[in-house]
């Protein structure tokens, strides 16, 4: 759906702009989560990381409450959630970022590291879904 996608995207981009111009920080969710959970020793003050992470479910809750239902179709298999979560957690730390940090914040400043990172995770994401479908593991 192009229009909600664009509107939601603009909101995400403005949020990232507030983090940069207000606090001088990258709105990279994986890094901020690691910082908020004290898994990472570097990064913004804990109060900034914690407040941003707290805001994510708060914002989603407000939309569901005041704008309308938010569709969330999760895989039924807990195994997929567990394996996916483990690999995402490890990979985003090793690769220094995820869709927000590399994809939104990095691409928008034409960072070479982020362009390469985004190409890698998009490529492996496409490949993973194709392989899962071929193996009958699609959902």
């Amino acid at each position: 759906m192009p229009v909600p996608g664009l509107i939601g995207g603009l909101m995400i981009g403005f949020a990232a702009a507030i983090m940069l111009l207000g606090l001088g920080r990258i709105a990279g969710v994986s890094g901020l989560l690691a910082r908020a959970m004290r898994i990472s020793d570097s990064g913004p003050p804990l109060v900034i990381a914690g407040a941003f992470i707290l805001g994510l479910p708060l914002g989603a809750f407000l939309v569901a409450q005041f704008i309308g239902p938010v569709v969330t179709r999760y895989p039924e298999s807990s195994a997929l959630l567990i394996v996916g979560g483990l690999v995402v957690g490890f990979g985003t730390r090793l690769g220094s970022g995820c869709t927000s940090g590399h994809g939104v914040c990095g691409l928008s400043r034409l960072s070479k590291r982020s362009v390469v990172a985004t190409a890698c995770f998009m490529g492996s994401g496409f490949a993973t879904v194709a392989v899962m479908n071929a193996l009958g593991m699609g959902w």
């Binding site: 969710v29 994986s30 989560l33 992470i53 994510l56 479910p57 708060l58 914002g59 989603a60 809750f61 569901a64 938010v70 969330t72 999760y74 895989p75 997929l80 959630l81 394996v83 996916g84 979560g85 483990l86 690999v87 995402v88 957690g89 490890f90 990979g91 985003t92 730390r93 090793l94 690769g95 220094s96 970022g97 995820c98 869709t99 927000s100 590399h102 390469v116 990172a117 985004t118 890698c120 995770f121 998009m122 490529g123 492996s124 994401g125 496409f126 490949a127 993973t128 879904v129 899962m132």
Partner: peptide, 26 residues
């Protein structure tokens, strides 16, 4: 390596860190 791994997990579950944490409320 990290970004390739991240993409694999993203493809497996359809989730990256932001939507997963926001999903705690949904």
């Amino acid at each position: 390596t990290g970004s390739i791994l991240f993409g694999i997990g993203w493809g497996i579950a359809g989730l990256c860190p932001g939507p997963a944490i926001a999903g705690l409320a949904l």
